[in-house]
Computed example of a mutant assay.
Amino acid sequence: MDIRDLLQITLPIIQAPMAGSQNHQLAAAVSEAGGLGSIPAGMLNPETLDAELTAMAALTRKPYNVNFFCHQTPADDPARTEAWLALLAPFLNEFAIDPASIPGGATRQPFDAAMAEVVERHRPLVVSFHFGLPTRDLLERVKATGAKILSSATTLEEGRWLQAHGVDAVIAQGVEAGGHRGMFLSDDINGQVGTFALLPQLVAALDVPVIAAGGIADARCVTAAQALGAAGVQVGTAYLLCDESRASQLHRQALQSPFAEHTVLTTLFSGRPARGIVNRLIREVGARPEAVPAFPLAGNAIGSLRAAAEPLGIDHFSPLWAGQNVSGCQPIPAARLTEALAAGWKN
């Protein structure tokens, strides 16, 4: 089955949810073009998500996806925080940031009962999860709305786990993909594989449709994914330069620079592995130092550095999320990109 039937869309293209770089405007443009637009809820609270979905409904009546994180909120670890602030001390001093001014606590919340109420109120046709799935009772509440359930697998083991726990389709997230890895059964980066290695393994092993994600930038990539059994594709990085994207000017400049050829999996910006363009912070302290606090606590100190640097036109502490293939990034309307990607699908 291809996802056009499952998700009631006309083009087998899913716009990847990209927290911090988009809102309902990009999602609505993709949905209106016949693909599946996605709204990232990982950085929202129930009130702001409700507003986003209300705004989405004003722009389109077509199906869309809402994406949630399923991480565990970590306990406070003062020793880890102290080591982290010591690692960042040269940068904090450079921008005259008092460590005592850095807020504490988790800035991103996992899917919970309050978010489930928003889903029940708006009833999106598709709900997707990152980092596994929520607890069974919460998942059943979402399913009871009639929503189709998607989640990301970064290994064959994760794909089998997701199918056994009742998803309607699995997103095969190759290691090329930008942003956060969806890995949840292991934290071993060495176990992560490329899209076109992972995709056929999942297609062969699973009974549910498999959606290819990671490194898919143009119609040729879509054709290749289909040839390997994909039921559809999910694309993120290529949408970052679109007219409806809310990627910052610094992010847009980086995507169009030679530096975009060099991405790495880093834990610096949030505490979980995520792929982005190498900048000064990554170069000087390493991509995954041991002192980084657990997700999402690393983002607090980084947020203070960003707030000081970005107004000066400095991207040294900005998470410049991007996949390994930025060749599809174009400053065009999202509808045009969606149609260009779909031209690679052969039926």
Rank of each mutant, 00 (worst) to 15 (best):
M1Q: 10
I3G: 01
Q8R: 14
P12R: 07
I13S: 03
A28M: 05
A28P: 00
A28Y: 06
S38F: 00
S38M: 08
G42C: 10
N45T: 12
N45H: 06
D50A: 14
T54V: 07
A55I: 03
M56V: 03
A58R: 14
R61H: 11
Y64P: 05
Y64L: 07
C70S: 12
H71P: 02
T73C: 12
W84K: 09
A86P: 04
L88S: 07
A89E: 13
F95W: 14
D98N: 15
P103C: 09
G104Q: 12
G104F: 01
V119C: 04
R121H: 07
L125C: 05
G132C: 08
L138G: 05
A144F: 00
G146R: 01
G146Q: 03
K148D: 04
S152D: 06
L162Y: 03
Q163H: 03
H165D: 04
A172E: 05
E176F: 06
M183G: 15
L199E: 06
L199T: 04
A205K: 10
L206F: 11
D207E: 13
G214D: 06
D218S: 13
A219Y: 05
A224N: 07
A230S: 11
V235L: 05
T237C: 00
L240S: 09
L241F: 11
S245A: 14
R246D: 11
R252S: 08
F259E: 15
E261H: 11
H262F: 11
T263H: 06
V278C: 08
E284D: 15
V285Q: 05
E290L: 04
A294E: 14
F295R: 12
N300Y: 04
A301W: 04
G303Q: 09
S304L: 12
E310F: 08
P311F: 07
L312M: 13
G313T: 03
I314Q: 12
I314N: 15
Q324P: 08
A342I: 08
G344F: 01
